[in-house]
């Protein structure tokens, strides 16, 4: 299982739109307020697109659906658009799991999607039987539900979101990773990717699974923030293992200045693709120039 599709050097991140800031809860709140209106989000996306950034990361969040609708409404406006979504949006499931348990949350999720209701009704005659007998089938259904958000749009890589990737990595069940990769590739002709907080361990594991030259997105910054077990193992894995790294959190939530951040990631580590989020034209242009300087 190996493909080598082009990965954009700059992927525009979306955490800022959803009020996510890893360093400060006040900042996160301020962001949520700023991007309360969809128009505030699409204005920034349009600005980024007009600055020559075609690649956008999207978490499968409620706002992601609205953003996709915005793209679909005017395809002529975004001829070169390509998306790098991740799934599932774990916080959406977390409360459901707390309330109804794991199987309850899965069932709700699948039942709430009307197109799967009929087929699922047939399969669930034995209560939760389907879940235990064929977890892979359940995963396929969940992928189908989340992929619908991106219908008619150009998806380049579909990522497994980090909480799920890392939880499953801890379990070490190879079938899940192989099945995710195969299903995404075969059914949607989209490259599978994995977001992680444990990049060295995940890369070794994916290679062990036979997923060759995998796409792995992880925090990479010169202060080692969100880099487990340590920065040295990251640097070693980058030199020694064959995979396609994508760097996120390069600024370590503001602990590193942009020039040093890009110099470290693109020049010193020779990484060809980064995720960054920004809210102003000035900031977008500056980051683009930096990447072009060091890449």
């Amino acid at each position: 299982m190996e493909t080598n599709a082009y990965i954009d050097p700059i992927i525009f991140g979306d955490n800022q739109f959803f009020g996510i800031n890893h360093m400060s809860e006040n900042k996160a709140q301020a962001l949520a307020e700023k991007f309360r209106d969809l128009k505030a989000i699409t204005d920034v996306i349009d600005t980024a697109y007009d600055c020559g950034i075609n690649a956008f990361m999207l978490n499968t969040h409620d706002r992601a659906m609205d953003i996709c609708d915005h793209f679909r409404k005017d395809p002529g406006r975004y001829p070169d658009l390509c998306l790098y979504p991740s799934m599932p949006y774990a916080h959406k499931y977390a409360n459901a799991v707390a309330e109804k348990g794991i199987f309850g949350a899965l069932k709700d999720s699948i039942f709430s999607d009307s197109s799967t209701k009929d087929i699922f009704g047939l399969l669930t005659k034995g209560g939760s039987l389907i879940f235990s007998k064929d977890m892979m089938k359940v995963m396929q259904m969940l992928i189908d539900i989340e992929m619908k958000i991106f219908r008619d749009l150009n998806v380049r890589v579909m990522f497994l979101q980090n909480i799920v990737t890392d939880l499953l990595l801890g379990f070490g069940v190879k079938e899940v990773f192989v099945e995710f990769a195969t299903y995404i590739t075969d059914k949607y002709h989209v490259e599978p990717g994995f977001i992680t907080m444990n990049m060295p361990k995940l890369v070794d594991f994916l290679l062990d699974c036979g997923i060759e030259n995998p796409i792995v997105c992880s925090a990479i910054n010169r202060v080692g923030y969100f880099m487990n077990p340590n920065i040295q193992d990251y640097e070693n894995t980058l030199t020694e293992k064959r995979f396609r790294p994508i760097a996120m959190s390069i600024l370590a939530s503001g602990a590193v200045n942009p020039e040093d951040a890009v110099e470290y990631v693109c020049h010193k580590l020779n990484i060809r693709s980064i995720v960054f989020g920004a809210s102003s034209r000035q900031h977008i242009l500056e980051t683009r120039q930096l990447v072009e300087k060091y890449l």
Binding site: H22, M23, S24, M227, N228, G254, A255
Partner: peptide, 12 residues
């Protein structure tokens, strides 16, 4: 900020 003194763990 947590970035000033956060320490990595063996598995996150």
């Amino acid at each position: 900020y947590i970035t000033d003194f956060a320490k990595s763990v063996r598995f996150y």
